[in-house]
Structures are given as structure tokens and as C-alpha cells.
Design a protein around this nucleic acid. Structure first.
Lengths: 225, 225
DNA sequence: ATTAAAGGTTACATATTGGTAACAAAATAT
DNA sequence: ATATTTTGTTACCAATATGTAACCTTTAAT
């Protein structure tokens, strides 16, 4: 899907130029001469990136963005366009991660490269590596576990165990299988090892035993389904 | 900031002429009669462009540049100066993208135009290039670190480590990953190397341990989120 | 209901892992 | 060359995750 880029810039000609080039690069554009209707549009449209003039007649572009971020939790990356000397402003620390800064006059090609870079970066962040079962969500990158909208802290072993169970959901996993796949050893463990680990996990993900995520299959192993 | 141009040319008079004209155009210059100390200077100074004689008495100029590029990852654009009757030809393909070639005797003005063009093209490197996490701001060009509006001094290793963590924020980075990406070696380090480095960094960016920027994920690695 | 087998629970021992400080080596600056 | 800073290494300590064993509970077959 085409990325939508919102432009806020008081120079009409520059908007036109930007829109021309951006559409040639395959982006959708929305141009605004002031911040007037921007907030509304942001709430209604899916905007991937904002090109923001920093020196607008009515309000500081970065002020406006900060406000949106703080008050509305706006999270769209921004590239600021500014005539002012960059060094001075960069130090100010108004830039967030993912944001960038380009001084006018700028090379159109350079701007395109930066836009591309930012869009690539944010796209990647949103393509998280998740695994889900009912209301259990595992993020494999951050190793964060969310159960019923609450974050649950699991140890490495517990996380790996739950991960394995969910990947193979619907199957009953035998102790040997779990030992091999989670503990990673052919043998060397005896007795209740898997047993205890499983029950520790059960306790953590469902303390009041109301959800019954993990089922014990007597004589065989464990399953999640 | 003025661009710094390094000149390697065995003709003393030509160096002088170049330096005279370049400084008139507003560039800083560094002249060398041979490649002898060039490598050292490149590592110490911020050089924006190299003017390199291709027919040096001791070594082929382009040989020298290739070596720097391959072995040290040198990435500065080069304009080669070469006598027209030289046995070497442009066709040889020793030019990289961004590099250029000028035959002696050359029009000074033409050379200036080419220099300008190359610098304009590579200028993006000197522009805002930042990375941010919460109230930590890294300026990748100046390598200045601002935390809570205060400048914090980090060593190279610490800076690179923090940079890597922030780029991959949200993900838990394993020791192996950090070793490869920050230390840049397949192996060769043992024991608590990563460990100690991380804790030194933690101490510097959050001395009173109130911010908890970097989290240890036991059994896995470290993360910033 | 009795019983035996399987799984759950608990407490504790042990192993793993990370933090820390001190020092050595390497890199840098003077 | 010498001093200083940075980085790697080691040894030790603290935290905590995990394995184990002993004991308890549940299940299901009789």
C-alpha cells in the first residue's frame, strides 16, 4: 500500500514541488498551508510521515508536533524542513528517534532518500514477531508477554516453554519432546523437571486457575488448545 | 562548517596553487607530498574530499585509495588528478561512485565546480543524523550525547553500544549480537566483556539508577524499551 | 472405597547468570 | 617517552532461576 505523506508548509510553490516529486515516487500526499486542519486529518487518515516546515507564520512547527505527541500520543515520524542552521537546532533536542531534519534549500533526491529510510525503519518496527494463543501474546523480539492486556514477567525457560507450546498448539507435547526442544539436551534430566517447570508456568500465566490455558494430558504430556 | 580537503600531490608548486585557490573558495586544505602520513590524518581529521595525484613516485594513488577503502572502510570521495599522457586510462574502472577524474593540465574553475558538485552530493552526511530514546539524544555526526538536557561524555565503545541498543529498541539483544555489531568480531572475546561494558554504560547514563533505561533480560541479553 | 500410578506442590540445594571491583593491557593523549 | 584514558580480563559476590526430592493430591481402574 502506498504511504501517505502529509506536508505542512506555508510556501505554496514548495508544496506543489514536493507533491509533484512525491507522487512521482509513488507516495500519496496531503498538503497544508498551515497547521489549522492537520490535527483533524491525522485522526481521520492513516498518515505515515509528516513533512513539517519549522518556520510557519503562526506557530513553530516543532511546537505543534510536540503538542500533538504529548496531548494526543501522536506517533508519526516527522521530517522538519527548516531554513535555519541545522547544528543549532539539532542540539536543542526537539528531535525524537525516527525524526529527521533537513535544511532548505535541500536536494530533492536527498529528501527522498531520507523519507525512504524513515518509512523503511518504521515499517520494520511495526512488523513485530508475535505469537498468540487466545489472549496470550508473546513478542519474540522484546520477549514481552501480554496476557489479558497485562504484562506478565516470565523467566527465559518459562518464555521458551510457553512459546513452544503455542507454536505447537493443538498437539499434545510429550516430556521428551519438551526436553529436547526447550531444554535442548538429549537427556540428563530426571524426574519431575518438566513437570515442575510446567506448573510454575501455569501458576504465572493463570494464578487463579480460571483460564486453564495449559492442559495436562495424563500419561502423555501437555497441550495448549 | 568549512569543508576540509586533503591534497596528495608530489608537485609542490601544484599543491601551493591548489591550496591558494581552495582557501579562496572557502575550503580548509591539508597538503601532502606523499601518502606517508595520509592514513593517520584521515583517521584523525574529518576530511570531506581527497584530491589525489594518480602518478605518485612511490605508489599508485588509486592503489593507495583502494587499499584504504578495503582495509579501513574509508569512505571519503576522491578526485584523481592525472597527466593526460599517462599510461593509465579512466576506462580502467578504478573510479567508484562519487569519485571523479581530472586530467592535467586542468582548468582550475572546472576543478572547483567538480569539487562543489561532489561536496553537495555527499553533504547529507554532515546533516542532522540523530537517534533518540526517551530523553536520550545521540547525534551521530558529532557523537554528542544529551540526556535530560545535559551533555554526557561517552567513550567510543559506550556510544556505539548505546547507539546499537537504541536502533534496535524494543528488542532484546543477545551478547553474540552485540559482540558482532559493536565489537565487530566473530569471537575473540570472552567472559564478562559485554557485561562489564554494559554496566559501565548504565552507570554513565543513569548514575543514580533511577531511570532504568537499559534492562537486563536474564539468560538472554539486554534491551532498551 | 481402595489402591496404584501420575501429576502437583513445596522447600531446599545447586547451578547459572549477572554485577562489581580491581587490575592488566591497549589505545590515546601529552 | 610518559601519562592518561579506555577497554578487556579475572576473581569474587549476589541474585535468581532451575533441578531435585519428598510429600501430597488427583485420577481412574478395580
Amino acid at each position: 500500500m502506498k504511504a501517505q505523506i502529509l506536508i505542512v508548509e506555508d510556501d505554496k510553490d514548495l508544496i506543489e514541488l514536493l507533491e509533484y516529486r512525491l507522487s512521482k515516487e509513488g507516495y500519496e500526499t496531503l498538503g497544508f498551508l498551515s497547521t489549522k486542519n492537520v490535527k483533524k486529518v491525522i485522526n481521520e487518515e492513516i498518515i505515515d510521515l509528516i513533512l513539517m516546515d519549522r518556520n510557519l507564520p503562526d506557530i513553530e512547527g516543532s511546537e505543534f508536533i510536540s503538542m500533538l505527541r504529548e496531548k494526543d500520543g501522536m506517533d508519526i515520524p516527522v521530517i522538519y524542513l527548516s531554513a535555519k542552521d541545522s547544528k543549532y537546532h539539532v542540539r536543542e533536542g526537539f528531535l525524537r528517534g525516527g525524526d529527521d531534519y533537513v535544511t532548505k534549500p535541500f536536494e530533492m533526491t536527498e529528501l527522498m532518500l531520507r523519507i525512504e529510510a524513515i518509512l523503511r525503519r518504521t515499517k520494520k518496527n511495526s512488523q513485530a514477531n508475535n505469537v498468540t494463543f487466545r489472549d496470550i501474546h508473546l513478542d519474540l523480539n522484546s520477549r514481552i508477554v501480554i496476557i489479558e492486556n497485562r504484562e506478565v514477567e516470565l523467566t527465559k525457560l518459562e518464555f521458551d516453554l510457553l512459546h513452544t507450546l503455542i507454536i505447537h498448539q493443538g498437539n499434545v507435547l510429550k516430556r521428551d519432546f519438551l526436553l529436547k526442544n526447550v531444554w535442548g539436551k538429549g537427556a540428563g534430566y530426571q524426574g519431575r523437571t518438566v513437570n515442575v517447570a510446567l506448573n510454575r508456568l501455569k501458576e504465572k500465566i493463570d494464578p487463579d486457575k480460571s483460564k486453564d490455558y495449559i492442559k495436562t494430558v495424563r500419561g502423555v504430556g501437555y497441550t495448549i488448545q
